[in-house]
């Protein structure tokens, strides 16, 4: 029999993919239609710092993978540790992003300053909202694991969160390439 919760999550992630396809398409319309990008007098995006931050997020994908293995092997301590590491890395990623946004805003790049700023904050912001959601879910799960409840439902929860986390992590290199590098 097909595993219903994972199947449901997969279907949901299909819709999420199309949501980002919409945001990316809007970005590309403006990006490819512009004669110069970034437009004149607009700040350049912090490529190096975000590159390092990309590494942080990818690392959180690895710790999430370890958490999933621990959950499968029913290693309670390992699960809690890996989830906590994942949360820490995710929070670091968000923190660095927040710092960057603060600097960009200080340089005068706002969402209403033009389509360059508008697409940047919307597309990257949409991803950030997903990271926040994933972190909140992770925090709830971590609290549940700490209390040491029933092992079986926690396992389903961890594996669903894992799928969502992978999605959020996997999306990022694409966004980084499109928005920061290309």
């Amino acid at each position: 029999m097909v595993d219903a919760p994972r199947l449901g999550m997969l279907i949901f992630l299909g819709s999420e993919t199309m949501l980002f396809a919409g945001f990316i398409a809007a970005f590309l319309v403006f990006r490819l239609g512009a004669p110069v990008w970034p437009p004149p007098f607009q700040p350049r995006l912090p490529v190096e710092l975000t590159g390092a931050n990309t590494g942080v997020l990818l690392l959180s994908g690895y710790t999430m993978w370890r958490a999933l293995r621990a959950a499968r092997d029913e290693k309670h301590a390992g699960l809690t540790r890996s989830l906590a590491q994942t949360a820490l890395l995710g929070a670091t990623f968000l923190g660095v992003q927040g710092y960057e946004w603060g600097r960009l805003l200080a340089f005068g790049l706002t969402a209403s300053s033009g389509v360059y700023g508008g697409t940047f904050y919307t597309l990257i912001g949409a991803h950030a909202v997903h990271v926040v959601a994933a972190l909140a879910w992770l925090a709830l799960l971590l609290i549940g694991t700490r209390r040491g409840g029933d092992a079986a439902p926690a396992h389903v929860g961890v594996s669903l969160l894992g799928m969502y986390w992978y999605f959020v992590v996997a999306l990022w290199p694409l966004l980084y390439t499109l928005v920061y590098l290309a």
Binding site: S15, E16, T17, M18, L19, F20, A21, G22, F23, A25, A26, A111, S112, G114, V115, G117, G118, T122, A126
Partner: peptide, 19 residues
């Protein structure tokens, strides 16, 4: 999904002045 993306952008146009 793409329409939700569009709706978000429309709301931002109306509320925070994106273009």
């Amino acid at each position: 999904g793409p329409l939700i993306a569009g709706a978000v952008m429309l709301l931002l146009d109306r509320q925070i002045g994106t273009h």
